[in-house]
């Protein structure tokens, strides 16, 4: 299961999450959603620390964040 889950139907491609990701592991996907938006995507999920900065910054509450529990 992923740490970083996006609901692409909510994403408007504003890019705020991409700009704010401290590890720079978010980027626009290379596919369009049915709304005609290039959604945000994670490029290297292994590096993701589940800090949730992207999710908290998302104006459309499109991102859910999970963390591995030991």
């Amino acid at each position: 299961m992923s740490k970083w889950v996006i609901n692409e139907s909510l994403c408007k491609g504003c890019g705020i999450c991409i700009a704010r990701c401290p590890l720079k592991i978010l980027a626009y996907a290379d596919h369009l959603t049915p709304k005609g938006v290039y959604p945000a995507a994670i490029t290297d999920e292994a590096k993701c620390t589940s800090c949730a900065i992207c999710a908290r910054s998302c104006p459309d509450v499109a991102i859910e964040i999970y963390k591995e529990e030991k």
């Binding site: 949730a52 908290r56 859910e64 529990e69």
Partner: peptide, 10 residues
Amino acid sequence: MTMKKVFSRP
């Protein structure tokens, strides 16, 4: 290993 939700829609 399980996954714990850190952030989701209120």
